[in-house]
Structures are given as structure tokens and as C-alpha cells.
Design a protein around this nucleic acid. Sequence first.
DNA 1: ACTGAATTGTACCCTTGGCTACATTAGTCT
DNA 2: AGACTAATGTAGCCAAGGGTACAATTCAGT
Lengths: 156, 156
Amino acid sequence: MTGNLSETRVDATTDMPEEPTQALRFGRARTARSSALQEDYVELIADLMAAHGEARATDIAKRMGVTHPTALKSITRLKREGLVTSRPYRGIFLTEAGQELAQRVRARHRLMVEFLLALGVPAEAAEADAEGMEHYASEATLAAFGRFLGRLRRDI
Amino acid sequence: MTGNLSETRVDATTDMPEEPTQALRFGRARTARSSALQEDYVELIADLMAAHGEARATDIAKRMGVTHPTALKSITRLKREGLVTSRPYRGIFLTEAGQELAQRVRARHRLMVEFLLALGVPAEAAEADAEGMEHYASEATLAAFGRFLGRLRRDI
DNA sequence: ACTGAATTGTACCCTTGGCTACATTAGTCT
DNA sequence: AGACTAATGTAGCCAAGGGTACAATTCAGT
């Protein structure tokens, strides 16, 4: 109709073209999305290990709300990524890398939940939302959440 | 090793089994993840319409940071879901439902960004994080964000 | 030691969302 | 009008993450 305007359009406030930066943002979101599931698995495995001393495939599947073959496939991927080890018909174990990841993910999760609770979000919603949002919060955002909680505690 | 403890384990604070509720949370997160992309497309199409008067497949692809066949496939899915219409070699248009969704998504996005900025998150991080997190924030959380912004404005 | 149930593993299918390669149509310019 | 370019569409490939159905192994209880 009007021809290609996209090459010449600029952002009103910055005088910079908007496409590349937005494409980068979406790209990062895609990357985060693809690691989100792995982070959830690793966190869950760490939880099960802490609670039961072991992480079994069926329990993982139950907790994830997924059939066991699906869980097994995801675990296979975790093995390939070096986050987890397992021998046939034996439990699942986190590698060094897996434990480090689990620790970071759990800290992030706790911070996220605490932050939402502090804002007045009901507990169940806070847990549910954190489960999704935590994977997309950058260090900058997590730091801001931390500062907020710090201020709250200081000002009582 | 120690037999099946999963059926009997309970949450320390509530005395309720933890599996079902956690499975539900993960299920909801999965659902949100699957609609996230559609929401991004619809929002982007609305933006392009507002800026250029039309939404073309190539521009959508560029902005999403994706090749055009990928964008076309997603658009096909949007058509199937009744959010969008298009005729061969013509532009993409939002249906009623698509416009409504776009409006909700944009409002949510703006709220999210504004909230993060108010917390002191740098602009680029706020935009990037909002792109991911917005899809997982429940009404309760969005309401809490709104209250926070309201308090800020009132207390100057 | 055996049997039956539970757990784990495997095979195969589906959809989504990426990609490349190629075909077709529309738009523009001489 | 014709030719070139850009945009759109189509075909086919891949990996991830969901599922069912069935096979194999382990575990528990007699």
C-alpha cells in the first residue's frame, strides 16, 4: 500500500530504529523460555533430594504434573547438558553444575516470592506467579527487588 | 531405597500434600508459556497497525527477530485461534477478539514496565524483563503493582 | 523363591516454533 | 509492457516437550 516504511521509521524518544533492539529483547525472552523448564526440573530435583534424600523419576513427574515418559525425556536432556547424572533404574543426581544452578534458582525463587508477598499478593498467587516470572528477571530486576525488601525491613 | 514416601509426605506449614498444588502451578505456567508467544504477536501487530496503519508479515518477522516463514506459521496459528485475519498477499488484521487481547496485553505491559522503572530498574532491563514476565503475572499481582504505583504517586 | 505391583525404560505419535530453500505474486521503475 | 526487487507463500527439516502403549526391571510381601 504505502511501501516499505519499516527501514526509515525511528523511535520518537531516541531517534534510533526500534526493530533491532526489540528483536534482541524477544530473542532473549526466547532463550529464557527454553531454559525455564530445565531450571524448574533442577530446582525440583534439589527439593526432592533435600526432602527425601533421593530424586525419583515418578516423583519428579508427579510434581511437575506430567507423565513419566515426558519427565524422563527432560531428564535425558538435563543429562546431556551436564546438570544431572543417573544410572538405569537408579535415582537422579545433580552434578556440581546442577547443584550450583539449583542454588541460584532457589535463591531467585525465594526472593521473588518474598517480594510478591511483601507487595501484598496472596500466597498462592505469589507462588504461582513466581514460578513463571522468576525465569525472566534479570540481575538488575532482582537487585531492585532486594533493595525494596531491604528498605521495607529497615523502615519496619 | 526407602520406599515410596511421596504419597505420605506433607507440607510442614499446611499439613497438606504438596504434589497436586505444585503440579497445578507448573501446569498453569505451561499454559501461560504457550500463550505468551501469541500475546507477543498480537501486541506487536497492534503496534504496527498504530504506527504504520498496517501490519505486514516481513515487518512482524523483523520485529520478532525471526525469519518470515516462522512468523507466517505463527500467524496461521493466530488465524486458527480467531485473533487475526488475512487474505493472500495482503496485510494482517486483528479481529475483535484480537483487538481486545491486544489492549489487555498492552495495558499489562505498560504497567509492568512502569512498575519496574519505579523500583529503579534501568530502562532497557525493565523493557526486556517485562517482555518475559508480563505473561505470568496474575490479576492479583498486577493489582498489587498498581497499588504500589498509586502509593508512590500519592506520597510523591 | 516367587509373584504382583510399582517403577523405569523404550517406541512411536503429535504440535509448536525454529530454520533453509524454493516458488509465486505484487509493486516499482524505466 | 517488461524486468527487477521485494514480499509472500509453500515444502520440508529439526529439536523440544507433550502424550499413549508396551516392555523390562526392581521391590515387597508372602
